[in-house]
């Protein structure tokens, strides 16, 4: 039995639309799962009804609204609610696509760094452009921490600028690495079941219970990680936006 834990991340074109330059433009499995995630979110938000006593679907929709709204209010203040649509979309997209990815035989959109990097760069440029638009040059005072003696200020400023530039990198790598490593670990442990059974026969199949149990436990962990990473992405977006809204804090 051959096990390739990386195979699940392959991108395969399903419908080829044409070419721009030498680059093929195609609807891939990644695109399809992005549409699936957006479709689920749309269904959850639009088809859940507006009763006074909420049903199950409406409860989920309302809880997710309240959750994101309270996260924004507590980290970026009431002014942060201006960015509610952005943060809510990011949170729901990442959360749903991660959760869809846990279902066996599906593709995890956020396990590709290009997807997470695009989302992180979107946040980075939103912070930068909004910060400069709202505060003008005062925005750059976030690079000058207060109470630093003058002779060391250039060095500190340089480190602050560098750490600002690092944000999109760590923001995207965190989500991508978590999803990638989780899915590889899951695949490897699930593969042990088959490998034991094939190589050792009956004893192997009995021994395979242990990796199987571990796979079940890891799936539960992945469920937590899928939600937690979406939450971390959203809360970091709020923290970064807080810099743009109130620089000098």
């Amino acid at each position: 039995m051959k096990i390739d834990p990386i195979h699940q991340f392959n991108i395969e074109p399903i419908i080829t639309l044409g070419q721009i330059g030498k680059h093929t433009i195609a609807i891939t499995n990644s695109t399809v799962y992005m549409f699936v995630a957006v479709g689920i979110i749309g269904l959850l938000m639009l088809a859940s009804g507006r009763q006074l006593i909420p049903g199950r679907m409406q409860s989920i929709a309302e809880i997710s609204y309240e959750f994101v709204a309270s996260t924004i209010r507590s980290t970026a203040g009431p002014e942060g609610m201006k960015f509610f649509p952005l943060i809510f979309s990011l949170f729901m997209f990442i959360c749903i696509s991660n959760l869809v990815g846990i279902v066996p035989y599906t593709f995890t959109v956020s396990s590709h760094i290009i997807v997470t990097a695009a989302l992180a760069l979107l946040v980075f440029f939103t912070v930068l452009i909004y910060g400069v638009y709202k505060n003008g040059l005062k925005f750059f005072s976030i690079f000058m921490p207060k109470g630093v003696p003058g002779y060391i200020l250039p060095l500190v400023m340089f480190i602050e600028i560098l750490s600002f530039l690092l944000r999109p990198v760590s923001h995207s790598v965190r989500l991508f690495a978590n999803m990638l490593a989780g899915h590889i670990a899951l695949k490897v442990f699930a593969g042990f079941v088959g490998m034991l059974g094939v190589s050792l026969g009956a004893i192997g199949w009995i021994g395979g219970v242990m990796p199987l149990a571990l796979t079940v436990a890891l799936t539960a962990l992945e469920l937590l990680v899928a939600f937690l990473q979406a939450y971390v992405f959203a809360i970091l977006t709020c923290i970064y936006l807080n810099d743009a809204i109130h620089p000098g804090h």
Partner: peptide, 15 residues
């Protein structure tokens, strides 16, 4: 594991 990745990704990104 999630938390470990979170902190290590910061450091690795920096370097």
């Amino acid at each position: 594991m999630a938390r470990g990745f979170q902190l290590s990704s910061e450091l690795i990104a920096g370097v």
